[in-house]
Amino acid sequence: FSITQFVRNLGLEHLMDIFEREQITLRVLVEMGHKELKEIGINAYGHREKLIKGVERLI
């Protein structure tokens, strides 16, 4: 299971460039909250919320 699959499953594949540029893996994403996601350029609250909720389902 990769970050690419995870992001695609959430319908947020347009954010993949950010994850690749910042070298974010699923392991790193698990540790990130709204503040960190915003810092790397994910400005939409809804997108950040989707990512965080998606990660919570993985754990």
Rank of each mutant, 00 (worst) to 15 (best):
G33D: 06
N9C: 15
V55E: 00
H47W: 11
T25W: 04
K53I: 09
Y45L: 10
G11K: 08
Q23I: 05
K50Q: 10
L58E: 05
R48M: 06
L58H: 07
L26A: 04
Y45W: 14
H47V: 15
I40N: 02
Q23S: 12
G41P: 01
H34G: 03
I59R: 10
L29P: 00
V28C: 13
E20N: 13
I42N: 03
L58D: 02
E13P: 09
I18V: 08
D17H: 15
R57Q: 13
E13S: 12
A44F: 12
E36K: 07
L58V: 07
K38L: 13
A44V: 12
K35E: 11
V55G: 06
L10T: 02
Q23L: 07
I3F: 11
N43P: 07
V28I: 13
R21C: 05
I3E: 00
I18T: 06
G11A: 06
E20R: 13
I59T: 11
R21I: 05
L29F: 04
R8C: 09
I40S: 03
F6L: 09
K35M: 07
E39L: 10
R21H: 06
G11L: 03
N43F: 13
A44Y: 14
G33S: 07
R21F: 06
V30L: 12
E20V: 14
R57H: 11
A44Q: 15
E39D: 12
R57M: 13
I18W: 03
K38M: 13
R27C: 15
T25Y: 04
I42P: 02
R27E: 11
K35V: 08
A44N: 15
A44R: 11
M16Y: 06
A44K: 13
T25M: 04
K38R: 10
N9A: 15
K38I: 13
L26P: 03
V55K: 05
F1K: 07
G33P: 01
F1H: 09
G54D: 04
G33Q: 05
T4N: 11
L29N: 00
E39K: 11
L37K: 00
Q23T: 07
E20L: 13
E39C: 08
I24G: 01
N9V: 11
E39M: 12
I3T: 05
E31N: 15
K35N: 10
G54P: 01
G46D: 15
H47N: 14
E31Q: 15
L29C: 03
T25H: 05
L29G: 01
L26I: 09
E20D: 11
